[in-house]
Simulated scan of single mutants.
Amino acid sequence: MTGRRRWSTEDILDAAAELLRTSDAESFSVRKLAAVLGTDSSSLYRHFRSKTELLRAVADRILLAAIDGYQPEGDWKQRIMTLALRMREAFGQHPQLAAVSGRYGSGGTGSRLMMEEALQALRTSGLPEAEIPARYHQLVVLVAALISSEAGVSALTPEEYEQGMELFRVSVLGADPERFPAVAHFARDIRPLGVDRRAAFEEILAAQLAHIEATICLS
């Protein structure tokens, strides 16, 4: 009789990432993953002690992919922008994992590599050493929020996205100018949430980096 296949840690993470493409972190379970692999949950718990630990490991692989091949170029602001855009692109391919990364954090190699490069970039900025951890935290919170927000839109089906666009057209472009005068006034210039998100991402992050730079110049 042929024995049941022994799955490696990498096989498990591959299968988990694929399962998360079609489900969110809330509905994901070790039991469902075991069923996909044709095994039982206990065999997976030999590799990961909990669902949270497994999700963290999957999210960390996305960070590893994001920093793979990265070479620091430009000034500190360009380095941080490049890191953030790499993260955005990587999680854009796995939108269901963006919330996982923001919620749990990974603490794995990918996370530490990202952290190391961001901190190294900030150390070249001219910030006082004592201010670097707080500025780093602000940037991480901002980037994680932007990526998670964008992932929510990316996870929509084409039908759901079009429904949202139609709702925007009705609620904004068709706003009653007497009840919503400001909305009616700016309606044709307001962009739907899902439009030009990369440009908005870069503009928001650039503004935060410029704010940090301004505090350096004043100190």
Rank of each mutant, 00 (worst) to 15 (best):
T2D: 15
R5D: 01
R6P: 00
T9E: 06
E10R: 03
E10P: 01
D11M: 05
I12Q: 04
D14V: 09
T22P: 00
S23M: 10
A25R: 15
S27M: 05
S29C: 00
V30C: 04
L33I: 00
A34N: 01
A34L: 03
A34K: 01
V36F: 02
T39G: 02
D40V: 10
S41K: 09
K51F: 03
T52P: 02
T52N: 13
T52D: 15
L54Y: 03
A57W: 00
V58Q: 01
R61L: 05
I62C: 03
L64V: 12
L64M: 14
A65P: 00
A66S: 15
A66I: 09
P72G: 13
G74C: 07
W76Y: 11
I80H: 03
M81L: 15
L83E: 10
L83Y: 08
L83M: 13
A84V: 04
M87K: 12
R88M: 00
E89A: 14
Q93I: 01
Q93T: 13
Q93M: 04
P95W: 01
P95E: 01
L97D: 02
V100N: 03
G102I: 05
Y104L: 13
Y104G: 00
G105C: 07
T109G: 09
T109D: 10
G110E: 04
L113A: 13
L113F: 02
E116F: 14
L119S: 03
L119T: 09
Q120K: 12
L122R: 02
S125D: 06
G126F: 08
A130G: 03
I132D: 06
I132M: 06
P133D: 10
R135F: 08
Q138G: 12
Q138V: 10
V140M: 11
V140H: 04
V143D: 09
A144F: 10
A144V: 11
S149L: 07
G152P: 04
P158T: 08
G164T: 07
M165V: 12
E166W: 01
R169A: 12
R169P: 03
R169N: 12
V170A: 11
V172E: 01
G174Y: 07
D176A: 08
P177L: 07
P181E: 06
A182S: 08
A182I: 14
A184D: 07
F186Q: 02
A187R: 14
D189N: 10
D189I: 13
L193W: 04
L193Y: 03
R198T: 15
A199S: 14
A199G: 07
I204M: 14
L205D: 08
L205P: 06
A206M: 11
A207P: 05
I212S: 01
E213I: 06
C217L: 14
L218F: 08
S219V: 12
S219L: 09
